[in-house]
């Protein structure tokens, strides 16, 4: 794999992960648990869509085949998508959405902080801008995990259920392949194996304070690095891509 291929695939992976997460989160807009929280989660969603747009723009530029970020978002099939499986999981109730978000925010803050030092200037620039946003996102999701874990019996039960549904998708975030190897050598990619103990420490502390049990021996799902997804992504794309696919020559 040459450097350019690897850089394209890396940007696509990051862009897709942000895009599918934001697409999921945007399902909450207008339906949040109360008005202020609806506005807060939408703010977070906007940040993540914005990051997805920048990353896919960069991927299109690296690829240099005349495709735009919209072509990449709206005209690729599920097998050509490389978002992490955790992002495509259904929102469930607010506890599940928050649990998923806390896992991702914690990962993203570590990841983009490291990526800000990348030798690739564009990725480093996007990462630098993202750090401030993700710091706020993480404060938001972590504080809700604390509220749910220590609030009422119901909120605690729901948080534990949300955890049980999402936990199996966390390990995949740290999976590395040839793309990472090629870019690590050039000082472009982030060494995910180095992030894992840091992530695990923070998450374990949070879950401990929120009285969430981490069961032993959970089978960890993976597949997205090869473009193999859960059943959910097909529906997400069918909905998201419907208009551009119905009107192939249209501009919006």
């Amino acid at each position: 794999m040459n450097l350019n291929d690897a850089l394209f695939k890396y940007s696509i992976r990051l862009g897709d992960t942000s895009l599918i997460l934001a697409q999921r989160l945007s399902e909450w807009t207008g339906h949040g648990p109360f008005l202020e929280e609806d506005l807060a989660l939408t703010n977070i969603t906007l940040d993540i869509f914005g990051r997805a747009k920048s990353l896919l723009e960069y991927a299109a530029k690296i690829e240099d085949k005349g495709r735009t970020e919209d072509d990449l978002a709206f005209l690729r099939t599920d097998r050509e998508y490389f978002n992490a499986l955790i992002t495509e999981q259904p929102n469930g109730d607010y506890a599940k959405t928050i649990m998923r978000q806390a896992f991702i925010d914690c990962f993203d803050l570590l990841f983009y902080t490291a990526l800000a030092k990348s030798k690739d200037e564009t990725l480093a620039g996007i990462a630098t801008k993202s750090i401030k946003e993700i710091t706020y996102h993480k404060r938001h999701s972590f504080s809700w995990v604390m509220r749910f874990g220590n609030g009422t019996e119901e909120s605690h039960t729901r948080l534990q259920q949300g955890f049980d549904e999402v936990w199996a998708f966390t390990e995949e975030l740290f999976e590395m392949n040839e793309v990472d190897e090629v870019l690590l050598k050039e000082g472009i990619a982030v060494d995910l194996s180095a992030l894992k103990p840091l992530w695990l420490k923070e998450i374990t502390e949070l879950l401990d304070k929120a009285n969430v049990q981490i069961p032993e021996g959970v089978y960890m799902q993976k597949g997205s690095r090869k473009g193999i997804h859960s059943e959910h992504l097909g529906y997400i794309l069918a909905e998201m891509q419907s208009l551009p696919r119905m009107h192939p020559n249209a501009k919006w």
Binding site: L19, S26, G30, T42, M240
Partner: peptide
């Protein structure tokens, strides 16, 4: 309008629509 957020046909139009729907919520507040 929220009915079209997940189906907005470009990334830009999605961002614009999402921000707009959020503004409506802010006005309500």
């Amino acid at each position: 309008e929220g009915n079209w957020i997940t189906r907005a046909p470009s990334l830009r139009s999605k961002l614009v629509l999402l921000a707009k729907v959020q503004d409506e919520g802010g006005h309500g507040l």
